[in-house]
Design a protein around this nucleic acid. Structure first.
Length: 818
RNA sequence: GCCGAAGUGGCGGAAUUGGUAGACGCGCUGGACUCAAAAUCCAGUGAGGCUCACACCUCGUGCCGGUUCGAGUCCGGCCUUCGGUACCA
């Protein structure tokens, strides 16, 4: 009988829902486990295979933990704000609220078909005022502490559409995706969260969390801590100084010119009349370049002189001040001292513009390159001469500090988090702009500042909120005068930086979340989501978590103790995504094979962290596995009612088939347990397939007792990875209760794992020449005797001299001959 | 460009600390069952050589080089593909 997937799925999903099997008891803290998968962006493309790949296997892991006795909390919600819904509105006229809500309705149904053990009581939507109110509250807390502030920052601006574009909306050739006009960078006053205040702690905290090393490394590099010095360079003939940051203060004697970022505020002041047109022209020429273009080391260096000079503080010499696009305003002080002798970019620049090059570190004899970045004794450096880099750094820094023109500094690549968006579909920023009082925060009691429904989505360059006067016009909370609301909304990463707290009690009205429950359930024990979030979402969430701790709202230092990244499922080589139209619909496969087969196939495809290109070749294999398993249980209906098994059997009381089965069952439990625990679903499933092959061969020649013993265990192992099938098989052999209602896990009998014999591989000069079966732990002398008696060994060592022998117990006997 | 990964049969992939390369599955080939097909079951399946056959030999984990008795695994240098690069989330 074929496995009737749709009947069985319906039956168990109904049972789980009606009996509230997955409603979490938050008061039971014994073995609590918070398993969180990154919540879903509800796009019009609905669920695609990538979502299934994220949610199905993670749920299997959570179910496995539940069977092992953990009190698992597994929620699901919707990251409902965001750009695509707004773009859709501009294109079709359908309001973002309406399209998002419709998408959520559809997605919720699709999610339920996967059969995950989500606690639907904990569902949350970030676009509801009851949620985003607390984004605003969080903003105000940050504002109070001086961690939310405004400054100028560049945005992508399309001069033709008169609108701000997301990076995604700018094509790789630098043009607008809508109209093809060249996009420029325009300065705008915007809100920032001061994540840089936490840079050091964000770095240190990485030591405490069990995350993939590569993710931690990416965060470390993103934070980009570097130790160096700030040095003031006097501008010749002017009051002002130029402050630079350098990681190589030891090379100061080699600083032969300076470079300011073209956006540097001093540029306008110092540029001489003669150079003004050139500077202006240069600034315009780089307006359309992205930072990636500007800092590319393969692109030819460009720049112009300002005509002004600065004084090198150690040599007293005048050095020219240039501007160039490879110096960014966002890093360090936006100005550098150029040391071509020890910096490749500076060398290239100096060569091109005929600027002097002085080596201040003596390269080794055989060095033939241009700039020399390595260690060596200082030269051409007066009082530093002869010192190696580290010592020279120390000495010059002391000298600078003594003279009051510089100091040792730590600099980070990390920038403050720009949260303003000139868009509608997001959380309104709770600030009121008053002509008397300036920026005034909305009072907490007046939250939420609700997002109005009626706005114009025409592209005007301002947030669409500007088009709704009822929203915009308000009164200043301080002085009572007419005032305007801030028209911008927040980056959606704000929503996702604290949602794991809110899941614990999404309906709570008077607080951001229930602190006591949070202290019991946060940090999240297992967090699963894509590696593409390594540096942004995962860093922002850590930052906000630490901030919440600092205002007394959580005890923990980190939000996510364990982190796993599922790989990306691509289609024809490209990432499946809402923005591209290459989404594969899982329904095709779930309707044909059922949800469990599809889930199994996704897990069996390969290592979870790797993902891969989608192909449905091979799904027949997991389907066969399900059919054969179901067949097996049908053949042994009510097995446990007919014969009750013991917990442990003595191997020598079993017949040959029973011995094979008993061993294989126990080996499989051990292997499966280890593999599943580490998210190695593919090998976990492979081990079950091996077990099934063995059961098909030998179960019939086992006693009823051993049959019960094996089938009980096999059903338990099936349950986390194929939950509907597992439940059904569990019931088929005669179990009365749902396995997830009364979780069961069988312990391994260690005696069954002990091997009698082992295969010793004989190598001669590293090549396998013979394989000899021997009892485990045979003494080396006896092994040697057997090895030398082997016919093939004799052939290969005949007439040769034995140089060396290596014996790895129970594994390898290697003979080296000449 | 910079930061981070990955590369193994026809295909997806497996392989404790360096110790039998190819588990498990797909596909393919042959056989059984069938009037026939599908489904199912059984056997075989890295490439090449040699042999009636059993056996045996050589090569083989992106490319080049190194360390080692022994390298898919470690080291150095490349190539290709993918993720991120601060307004997609």
């Amino acid at each position: 009988m074929r496995y009737p997937h749709s009947d069985i799925e319906r039956k168990w999903q109904k049972y789980w829902e009606e009996n509230q099997i997955y409603k979490t008891d938050f008061s039971n803290l014994n073995k609590k486990l918070y398993c969180l998968v990154m919540f879903i962006y509800p796009s019009g493309a609905k669920l695609h295979i990538g979502h299934w790949y994220n949610y199905g296997p993670t749920d299997s892991w959570a179910r496995y933990k539940r069977l092992k006795g953990f009190n698992v909390f597994e929620p699901m919600g919707y990251d409902a704000f965001g750009l695509p819904a707004e773009n859709y509105a501009i294109k079709t006229g359908v309001h973002p609220y309406d399209s998002t809500m419709q998408n959520i309705e559809d997605i919720r149904e699709q999610l339920k078909h996967i059969g995950c053990m989500y606690d639907w009581n904990a569902e949350l939507l970030t676009c509801e005022p009851e949620y985003y109110k607390w984004n605003q509250w969080l903003f105000l807390q940050l504002y109070k502490k001086g961690l939310a502030y405004r400054k100028n920052a560049p945005v992508n601006w399309c001069p033709s559409c008169q609108t701000v574009l997301a990076n995604e909306q700018v094509k790789s050739d630098g043009t607008c995706e809508r109209c093809g006009t060249i996009v420029i960078q325009k300065q705008l006053t915007q809100w920032f969260f001061k994540i840089t205040d936490y840079a050091e702690e964000l770095l240190a905290g990485l030591e405490e969390i069990n995350w993939p090393e590569k993710t931690k490394l990416m965060q470390r590099n993103w934070i980009g801590k570097s130790i160096g010095a700030e040095v003031d360079f006097q501008i010749a003939g002017r009051e002002e100084k130029i402050k630079i940051f350098t990681t190589r203060p030891d090379t100061l004697f080699g600083a032969t010119y300076m470079v300011l970022s073209p956006e540097h505020p001093l540029v306008e002041k110092i540029v001489t009349d003669e150079f003004k047109p050139a500077v202006q022209q240069y600034k315009e020429s780089i307006q359309s370049l992205s930072e990636i273009d500007r800092t590319s080391t393969v692109k030819e260096k460009t720049g112009v002189s300002t005509g002004a000079f600065a004084i090198n503080p150690v040599t007293g010499k005048e050095i020219p001040i240039w501007i160039a696009d490879y110096v960014l305003m966002t890093y360090g002080t936006g100005a550098i001292m150029a040391v071509p002798g020890q910096d490749e970019r500076d060398w290239e620049f100096a060569e091109k513009f005929n600027l002097p090059i002085i080596r201040t570190v003596n390269p080794p004899e055989d060095f033939s390159g241009k700039a020399y970045l390595g260690d060596g004794p200082a030269i051409n450096s007066d009082f530093l001469n002869g010192l190696f880099v580290d010592d020279a750094k120390k000495k010059i820094t002391e000298w600078l500090e003594e003279k009051g023109i510089g100091k040792s500094t730590i600099n980070y690549k990390l920038r403050d988090w720009l949260i303003s968006r000139q868009r509608f579909w997001g959380t309104p920023i709770p600030i009121i702009h008053c002509s008397n009082c300036g920026e005034v925060p909305v009072e907490e009691k007046n939250l939420p500042v609700e997002l109005p429904y009626d706005v114009e989505f025409k592209t005007t360059g301002q947030s669409p909120l500007v088009t709704n006067p009822d929203f915009m016009n308000t009164m200043c909370p301080k002085c009572g005068h007419d005032a305007k609301r801030d028209p911008d909304t927040m980056d959606t990463f704000v929503d996702s930086s604290w949602y794991y707290f809110r899941f614990l009690n999404p309906k709570i009205e008077d607080k951001i979340y229930d602190k006591e429950r949070a202290d019991n359930w946060v940090p999240v024990d297992m967090y699963v989501g894509g590696a593409e979030h390594a540096t942004m979402h995962l860093l922002y969430a850590r930052f906000i978590h630490k901030f919440l701790r600092d205002i007394g709202l959580t005890k923990s230092d980190e939000p996510f103790i364990n982190l796993v990244h599922q790989g990306t499922i691509t289609n024809l080589g490209a990432k499946m995504s809402k923005s591209k139209e290459n989404v594969v619909n899982p329904d095709t496969f779930t309707s044909q094979y059922g949800s469990d087969v599809f889930r199994l196939y996704l897990m069996f495809m390969g290592p979870y962290e790797l993902g891969g290109d989608w192909s449905d070749k091979g799904i027949a294999g997991t389907d066969r596995f399900v059919q054969r398993s179901y067949e097996l249980f049908n053949k042994h209906k009510d097995a446990i009612k007919k014969s009750v098994s013991k917990k442990i059997y003595e191997l020598n009381e079993l017949n040959e088939s029973e011995k094979i089965i008993y061993r294989k069952v126990n080996q499989t439990i051990k292997k499966f347990d280890e593999e599943l625990n580490h998210f190695r679903f593919n090998t976990a499933i492979a081990s079950l397939m091996e077990l099934l092959n063995e059961l098909s061969k030998n179960l019939d020649s086992c006693s009823k007792e051993i049959q019960s013993y094996s089938l009980e265990r096999y059903a338990v192992l099936l349950s986390p990875i194929a939950p509907h099938l597992g439940e059904e098989c569990w019931a088929l052999i005669g179990k009365e209760k749902s396995i997830f209602e009364e979780p069961v896990w069988f312990e391994v009998d260690p005696a069954a794992l002990v091997k009698d014999n082992t295969l010793v591989v004989v190598q001669i000069n590293g090549k396998v020449r013979a394989k000899i079966e021997l009892p485990v732990d045979t003494p080396e002398a006896d092994v040697k005797k057997t090895v030398y008696e082997d016919r093939k060994v004799k052939v290969h060592i005949d007439g040769k001299r034995i140089v060396k022998e290596i014996y790895v117990p129970n594994k390898i006997y290697n003979i080296v001959v000449k």
